[in-house]
Design a protein around this nucleic acid. Structure first.
Length: 530
RNA sequence: GCGGGUGUAGUUCAGUGGUAGAACGUCAGCCUUCCAAGCUGAAUGUCGUCGGUUCGACUCCGAUCACCCGCUCCA
């Protein structure tokens, strides 16, 4: 007996299977890879497409699967597909250019990293050459430690009015050299503050002058929706409350890409920006939060590994401070366990973004929405209408993270079956929907299998792959399908030749039943929930 | 960015300062009437990359890249 629990999922094993079966490859692998980028192989590409299609179907084509919104009306969503590169002013308005260059400071002695704008330093008033001690803002313990160290250095107890406090970011290089880090004992171990801008710069135009023609790859798809809000309202017969949805790539220069595809520098988002009257924001926030949670459960993340977590007030993003709240739908990945990693965030962004774009674009109140259903009643009994910036509820999901969670959830070790592991994908997202096998490669069975295969491809090929394989033993073929996560295998055997029945093998139970070959399509349709 | 670990076939891993191995998988053929069966055969690696030491480096040294873990960060 080994002490390794066979039901424990190892990320290394999952990654090995992803490579072996063609779900995920390292990007640029033959050149040594590239940090923070991953490619999808044949099965991974189809899995990802299936998840994206499921989202599109349930969000855009049939919003919330027909579930009415908190106002009792059908939920209305329209799609857009906006550019990865926008006018750089978009990112100034959104706050991405100016607001998020958090300068960081590393300590060479303690190996700790701090946000430079959270560090203050103290020293004796008027003392330009003596040591200064750095502490963390609003951290009582850190401050007291710094005071203690300063007193010890001065060999006396200093009064409050003998002390100068300044921000670390205001220090010169000389000042840094005489400063002692919050947890350090020596001076000069802090590096100069380094700025991190998480947006990918790029150059527009063939001359390639970065400074004059600088643009950015979008760090989120959301802004493409906000800047088209007026266009959509003006050209589509939608009115608040309604949502705009979009899927697409986004790019972030992550400080530390980690954990397989979880924190990639290039990734795909599935975002809804749902516009509603400020008075109704809370209701819509709750509605979207709960429906999105149930959607992920329905798509196959049904167990304890999925949680809904409401954010604490102090971890809210800049745009959500005034809103109804933010919650995360989080999955317990093998690499986060016992903790969780974010799959989707549902945030009340308030009217922050629309107001920002109203201001930066110069459109001002023209970007307000005119709501003819609100306002005081006129003499004829009709509402006079109300102009306002709608509040926005944003359910923003990571497609690649969803795929990764599905891969982890589906990975099911089973020492009793030949493959030792199978991928228990929900049939809706499974890249291979079914396989058709002749039991042996002779006696008319291959022809019969080809016939059924053609039929199933014609009916189900738009949903995923339909495989067929006549080589090697039937057990080996079943085992391969188990690792690929194919939910059903149809097998033509000797009996098929006499009574036109076939066997259906279920991936999860490995059990079989015999059905009429003409029922195979309906059987698959039922398994796919069609 | 810092610290630790790892890097040899598609995968999991041996290996030794002197011409590169196993298992599984893959492919082909035979066989095969239901779970990686059997038999025969085949392909596959610039031993992550670059440089250095050496008569000779997969092995020792340096750098670099990538992945994993911890810290940090995450609009």
């Amino acid at each position: 007996m080994t002490d390794k629990n066979p039901t424990t999922k190892s990320m290394d094993d999952i990654m090995a299977l992803c490579k072996r079966r063609g779900f995920v490859y390292q990007a640029s692998e033959i050149y040594g890879g590239i940090n923070g980028f991953w490619d999808y192989g044949p099965l991974g590409a189809q899995l990802k497409k299936n998840l994206r299609d499921a989202w599109w179907q349930d969000v855009v084509m049939n919003p919330c699967q027909g579930k009415p919104g908190p106002n009792g009306q059908p939920v209305r969503i329209v799609p857009v597909d906006t550019c990865i590169i926008q006018n750089p002013k978009v990112w100034e308005a959104s706050g991405h250019v100016g607001g998020f260059n958090d300068p960081m400071v590393d300590c060479r002695e303690t190996k700790n990293r701090y946000r430079a704008d959270h560090l203050l330093c103290i020293g004796e008033k008027g003392d330009k050459a003596g040591r200064m001690y750095v502490y963390i803002e609003a951290n009582e313990k850190s401050y007291e430690a710094a005071r203690k160290k300063l007193d010890k250095y001065k060999k006396r107890t200093l009064n409050d009015d003998e002390i100068d406090i300044c921000s670390l970011t205001d220090l010169s290089a000389d000042g840094l050299a005489i400063s002692v880090g919050p947890d350090a004992t020596e001076a000069g171990t802090l590096t100069e503050p380094r700025a991190f801008n998480l947006m990918f710069p790029t150059v527009i135009g063939a001359t390639g002058d970065l400074e004059d023609n600088k643009a950015y790859l979008r760090p989120e798809t959301a802004q493409g929706i906000f800047i088209n809000f007026k266009n959509v309202v003006d050209t589509t017969r939608v009115g608040v409350p309604f949502g705009i949805a979009q899927t697409g790539k986004a790019f972030r220069n992550e400080v530390t890409p980690r954990n397989f595809t979880f924190r990639s520098r290039e990734f795909e988002q599935m975002e809804i920006e749902f516009f509603c009257h400020p008075d109704e924001a809370k209701d819509w926030y709750v509605f979207w939060r709960d429906w999105r949670m149930s959607w992920w459960q329905e798509i196959g993340l049904a167990g304890d590994n999925l949680i809904l977590r409401e954010h604490d007030r102090d971890e809210l993003a800049h745009y959500a401070k005034e809103g109804a709240g933010t919650s995360d739908i989080e999955y317990r990945f093998p690499f986060t366990a016992p903790g969780y990693g974010e799959l989707e965030g549902i945030a009340d962004r308030t009217d922050f973004d629309l107001k920002q774009h109203a201001e930066h674009s110069g459109l001002g109140d023209k970007l307000k929405y005119f709501d003819p259903t609100r306002g005081e009643l006129a003499k004829n009994g009709q509402p006079k209408g109300e102009r306002y910036f709608p509040y926005v509820i944003e359910p923003s999901a990571g497609l690649d993270r969803g795929v990764l969670a599905i891969l982890c959830e589906a990975y099911t070790p089973d020492p009793d079956r030949p493959s030792k592991v199978f991928m228990k994908f929900h049939p809706r997202v499974a890249p291979i929907k079914a396989a058709v096998f002749p039991l042996v490669n002779k006696d008319g069975m291959p022809e019969k299998a080809a016939e059924l295969h053609r039929e199933l491809v014609k009916r189900f090929g738009h949903l995923g792959m339909i495989e067929t394989d006549a080589k090697q033993s039937i057990g080996k073929r079943y085992a391969r399908m188990d690792e690929a996560g194919c939910p059903l295998c149809f097998t033509i055997d000797g009996q098929t030749m006499t009574d036109n029945t076939i066997t259906v093998r279920d991936r999860d139970t490995a059990g079989q039943q015999r059905i009429a070959m003409t029922d195979a399509g309906d059987h698959l349709a039922a398994a796919l929930g069609l």
